[in-house]
Structures are given as C-alpha cells and as structure tokens.
Design a protein around this nucleic acid. Sequence first.
DNA 1: AATGAATGAGCTTTCATTCAT
DNA 2: TATGAATGAAAGCTCATTCAT
Lengths: 225, 225, 225, 225
Amino acid sequence: MPAPRFLSDKLFPERAKRARRKEARPGELLEAALDLFVAKGFAATRAEEVAARAGVSKGTLFLYFPSKEELFKAVVIENLAGRFTEWNAEFEAFEGSTSDMLRYCMRIWWERVGSTKASGLTKLMLSEGSNFPELAQFYREEVVRPGHALLRRIIQRGIDSGEFGPVDVDHAIYAVIAPMNFLMLWKHSAMVCVDADAHIDPETYLAIQAETVLHGLSKPQEAAA
Amino acid sequence: MPAPRFLSDKLFPERAKRARRKEARPGELLEAALDLFVAKGFAATRAEEVAARAGVSKGTLFLYFPSKEELFKAVVIENLAGRFTEWNAEFEAFEGSTSDMLRYCMRIWWERVGSTKASGLTKLMLSEGSNFPELAQFYREEVVRPGHALLRRIIQRGIDSGEFGPVDVDHAIYAVIAPMNFLMLWKHSAMVCVDADAHIDPETYLAIQAETVLHGLSKPQEAAA
Amino acid sequence: MPAPRFLSDKLFPERAKRARRKEARPGELLEAALDLFVAKGFAATRAEEVAARAGVSKGTLFLYFPSKEELFKAVVIENLAGRFTEWNAEFEAFEGSTSDMLRYCMRIWWERVGSTKASGLTKLMLSEGSNFPELAQFYREEVVRPGHALLRRIIQRGIDSGEFGPVDVDHAIYAVIAPMNFLMLWKHSAMVCVDADAHIDPETYLAIQAETVLHGLSKPQEAAA
Amino acid sequence: MPAPRFLSDKLFPERAKRARRKEARPGELLEAALDLFVAKGFAATRAEEVAARAGVSKGTLFLYFPSKEELFKAVVIENLAGRFTEWNAEFEAFEGSTSDMLRYCMRIWWERVGSTKASGLTKLMLSEGSNFPELAQFYREEVVRPGHALLRRIIQRGIDSGEFGPVDVDHAIYAVIAPMNFLMLWKHSAMVCVDADAHIDPETYLAIQAETVLHGLSKPQEAAA
DNA sequence: AATGAATGAGCTTTCATTCAT
DNA sequence: TATGAATGAAAGCTCATTCAT
C-alpha cells in the first residue's frame, strides 16, 4: 500500500483515493478530454473524438471512465480540484506578509490556471452548467468551494494579523475573484470580438487589481464593492 | 383589459381572437425560444420544448420557422439585430454632448439589453458559436457589426466635435464594450457563484466604467487600454 | 334527379354514381393532381402542392377528396377508367371491318391516351404500384380489366365474323397492348437516355405494329407470340 | 461446406467468425438494400427496414454507410457501376466477329443484369430519379455513361473492321439499348399485368432484336431507326 | 487490459389530415 | 363552401454506452 502523498490525504481519505485512482488512468485521455471540452464544450465533445485524440479506442475510454460525465469530473479534478491540496499546503508554508501572499496568489493563479487550458473549464461550467446540474454541483463543491475557502483563510490571516481591517470577508473574496473571472471570460470570448482586438496584458491587469483590492482591505478602509 | 385593436373585433369576437392568435403565434414562439435558448443553450434546446412552452405542437413551430437555426436567427433579430434601426435613429436625433451620449448609450444598453434575457443570446454565441458557424456568422454580421458601427459613429462624433482627442477608434470601441460584455457574462454565471456572492450593481458599475472610458477619451489624453 | 348519361349507367349504377360525383368536383384539382402525380409520382406529390396549383387551399382539397389515395383514384377515373363507357359505346357503334376497328383503336389510343399526360398514370402505377396495393388493385380493376375486356370484345368480333382465325384471345390482347406499353414507357423514360436521343415516331410505330398484329390474327395464321 | 479462407480461421474459429462477420456486414446490408430498393423504391424504403432485413439495428447501417443516399450509391456500384472494369476487360479480350460480340453482349447482359434484381435499379432511377437529382446524376455518370461507352467501342470496332457500315453510332447504341430497357421495364411491371399475360421469353426476344439491330448495322445498309 | 462492432434512445424535420372559424 | 392553423406519426441520422472477443 503506497503512502499518501500529502498530509491532507489522511484527513480526507476519499479525496486522496480519487486522486490516486486518477493517477492510474491514462493521462492522454485526460489531456485529450481537456483539449476538446475546452474547445467544443461538454455536450458537443464526442467520446469517440476524445478516444481518438488520445490514441485509444472508444471502448478503452469507457474502461477508465464509466461515463462522459465522470470523464469530465476527472478532468476537473486533474486540472483544478485535485490541486487544492498542493495549493493549500503552499499557503500553509507561506512566509511573508498577507499582502504579498495575496499578490502571489493572484499572480500564480494566472500562471497555473488563468493562462492555461484549465481556465476553459470554468468558462465551460458557465456556459453549460445549467444543462448538467450534476456537473455544476460537482464543480461548485470541488472547485468553487475550496477556492473560496483558500481565499477566506488568506484574508482571515490578514485580518488576524492586523494587516487588514475588519472587512466583510465574503465581499473581499469576491473582490479578488472578480478580476480573475473577468480575465478568464475575456480569454475565451474570441467569438464576440470582431475587428478591435485590443489586448489586455493579464499580468499587469492582475497586478493593478491586486493593489486595488489590497487598498480596499487595508486597515482603515472599507471592503471594495 | 386592452381594447380590441380593430372595430370588427367587437362584431366578430371569435374571428378576432383567432386572427390575433395567428398573428401572435410567432411572437409567442419567439418568446418561448428566447427563454429556452438563454436557459439551456442552442444545442440543448429541443424544438418540441419550445413549441410546448408556446402552447403549440411540434409541427406548429415548423409552420412558422423552417428550422431550429432559422428560429434562432429570428430570436436574434427580434431581440437584438432588429433594433438597430431604432437605436441608430435615436443616436441621430440625440442632442447634447458626445460624453452624455456615451453615458446614455451605456445606461440605456443595460436597461434594454444587458439586464434583459436578450443578453443571454450574446453569452450563448460565446459558448456555442464555434459549434454553429452559420449562426456565429449571422450574429457577427447582424449584431456585432452594427453595434460596433454605432459606437464608432458616436466616438467619431466626439472626435470631430473636438470633445475627444484623436484616439484609436477601435480601441475606444473596445473600451466601451468590455464592461458591457463583462456584466453580461457575470449576469449569466449564476452557476459558478456559490455562497457569498456580493452582487455588482450594474448601473453603478457601468456609470463608473463610463467615466473611466470618457477620461481616456478626453482631449489631451491617450485612448484607454 | 338527372337522367343517366349513358346506357351503361343503368347497368352499372355504382360506376355511374362515381362518375357523376366526379363531375361535381373541381376539375382544377383533378388537373393539378394529374400534372403533379405524373411529374413527381404519387408519394412525392404533396397534397398542398396540388391544392396550390389548383388555386385552392389545402383544406378544400380534402373537402372534395377524403384522402390523397381517393384523389388519385379520381384522377384515374377522370382520365382513364371513366372513359371506358364512352369508348365502349364507340366500339358498339363502330361500322366497318374489325381490322379497321383495331387499327382505329390503336391510333385513337395514342391520340387520346398515349400521347397525353394520362399515360403517365400507367407509368406511375408501374413504378409505385407495389407501395400502394390498394391503388394498384383499383387500377387493375378499373383500367386494366376494362381495357382488356374491350380488346377482347374487338378480337372476338373478328373471330366471330370470320375475319380472324381461331386465335388464343389472351395472346392476341397481349400482342396489341405490348407496343402501347412500350411507347408509354419510352415516353416517360427520359432519365435513362443520355446522349442518344433517337426518336421513335409513335404513329408510324403503332401503325406498323398494328399491321404486324393483324397479320398474326389473319385467318390462316397462328397468333403472334 | 466452404473451406475457411484463412489458415488462422481454424486456429481461432470464433475470432474468425467475428472477423468474417464484420467483413460480411456491408455485403449483407447491400443485399438487403438491393432487395428493398428494388421492391419498394428509394423513398419508400426505410433505413431501419434495410437494417432489420440484414439482421442488424438501425445504428449499424449508418456505421457502414453514412446516409441512405450513400447506401444506394453503394448498391449501384456493387451491382452495376463496379462491374464495368470486368466487362470492359472481357470486351478487350473478345476474339471473334463484332456481330458475335454484340450478340454475346446482349445475351450476357440479360444473364447478368436484366434477369437479376440489379435491373430493378434502372427501373428505380426511371421512377424516382427526378426526385433525387444527386442519385440520378450519379447513376448517369457511373452506369449510363460507361454502358454507352462500352457499346460505342463495340460498334466502332465493327465499323473499323468493315463489318458494319458507317452508321451513326449514337443511333446504333440506342437501337441496342432500347430492347434491353423494354425488357427491364416489362419485367418489373407485374403490377399492371392482370390475368392473361402471355410472357415474353427474354432470351428469344433479345436474340431476335440482336439480329434486327445487326441487320441495320450491316455494311450496305443504313442505321436502324 | 483493449478493442470496435453493435445498439437504440433521442432529436430534427416532413406532411397527410383535421377542425374551428 | 372554404380556409389555413394545428396536429402528430414517422423517418433519417447521431452518439453515449455495452459487450463479445
């Protein structure tokens, strides 16, 4: 029996199990699925196409994933949900001011998620979530909730340490997430833009937003609306 | 109780009802279609469902619209494309500064489009446009292009009158559209928002964005990025 | 109560009734139906198209003809089946040799049927009869059988009068019908001919065939195979 | 009992059965399709019926043929179009007089096409070609044209060798094809024949027609009309 | 573990027929 | 008598899923 890779695996054995089962599955399938889901959406992606892109037969796909929905969940785990253990650990280990932590958080988010195909999963949930309630539920539970929880802990750390004022934490979370969402949506909205392709520089944009948020969080001020 | 539209309606109330019924049919279908397209997307909306929601049978839908795609186009025309003549006229008639015109433009856009179901059509094109190239093409041609053209004329008016500096018009258009798009996408993202979602006040948000844009357009400055 | 138009109406009152009901129906519908049935076949002809071509609404068509099949039957009666009363009468009244009668029969058939759209009905039954057994049955009963009967009587007259030898009447009937069928099929087979449009002259062809048949029927000879 | 086609079939009889099964599938479907198309026509043949007759489900049919039209084309290729290479080769190898070649041609045509279900395809194109222009086009291109080309070469051979006079080749082709077409149409007209239908003996009929045609083609005469 | 042939529910679209007006 | 809006059964085709090999 292999040892749990993360401390948290002991605390959340079910999540750990899922993570390990995931490992046993061919990464090619997950990668192919990510590509196609992001490019074409959930409903419009055909199982056979995923298999073909991964270089296996249709049957093999269903050998590893009992259904298209489970395949999608696995993709979400692989690219988003399954990383929170690591991200949380990084947060636990972080040394420095909470302001720096928040700046780092937003920058690293762009690097690891926003700028990657993984952000397409969020856009996908936005678009098709209402048609696949179980997926939406899963996504909320496994991505949105841990994401909010992580931010909550960061902000709480700042409040506890006296760096931040006694802000409404929920509003603060929102203030952080809003620009991230904006960037993600922007990145995946090639369709509505026609001629004027003015480019946002995401890193700069996020850095500015980070400062704005931090300004709102700082001791004597109110939370940003 | 609304008055009968025709005198004869009083004399032959039953015929009138039937005539109005026939007249009303396309409208009822378009409304049902708008609701469902916005709620479930194009591909996931079944023709029969639209018909049922409009209170008619499957066959009747195809009596009025030759295909699902044509139904969608009709919905787009009814709710977006077909309104540009009116909007353009309003622009021609506008008296006042171009700054006010732009403020009015953004405010009225939220009132008439952004806050209505119609904005769901834009979100839909974003999600599914790539799967239905003909629809995407139609949408670009009939909605995006006239929309950009309208904004272009507004901005050009400001430049010509000396109110605005010699900005890059395409960038300026983009700066106006960006917050609109963001609001729309936000509005339709209920699925990803979980617990503590502080709500943006769209009117305020847009007003602030308008001022930001106008600041960037003002005489001695560069266009907003 | 109007008097029966033909003597035979008394003998076959049901047929007479059908013939009279036919009269009450708008000829435009029957004509439009004939055109379309011949041009496009039975299955491929849409009821609405027939109505439109006749200048009435779809509902009106079904007011006169309870179904598409009944419409077809009426067309067959109008153009073929219903004429046998008249043709039989003409035969009864014919004065002259049976050879001349047969020559006249074939010539007049081309004039009144073979060269007209009515011959398309026969081709139609050939093509689609097997898909519409009731129509095929009707056609056999109302067109093929009376047609054969008429020929049978002609040939029998020749035998009785001593003009023809004691031929096998069925074979003789066949010998007369074969060239007619050939011409009809030929006329409606534009599709298989590509470049070589060699033309048959139907009148000449039929005249020659008539002589051949008569040669076969003549006193000291055997029937043609 | 036929021998297994491959050695390995003996070693792995089940795999062999399955492999042959997959190999056999298209053939079974094509045969079922031929039967039904000939019996009921193209439009009236339902895809599911074809599948059922071949002992598979609806889905399987579309696994092998992307559409009903393509299925029909495949049937035409299998039974007519695809055989011209063989027939042309036979013609190239033929040793003997061109008259014999033409006699052989007509006889063998009856044996291989006219008397088989394949001839129903020609009748089908006649009936329904105008409703399915793409199929008609395909049939003309892949069946009518090569057929005419083959006959043209035969006749030209006779002219070149001096056996035939300098006839109009197109008319000559037509003179050969006419009796073939007639026989085919006759064969498929069971529906209009009622009681006493003396049967043509196709072999004899064709032999006689062949002599007639050859008479028309012979040196000192004009082409047959 | 891997395959891919086979399935069948589900969707869009057509059209003969009905019926309220 | 005439209309034409409304119906719904039926047909072609797709694709997630199963299962014998």
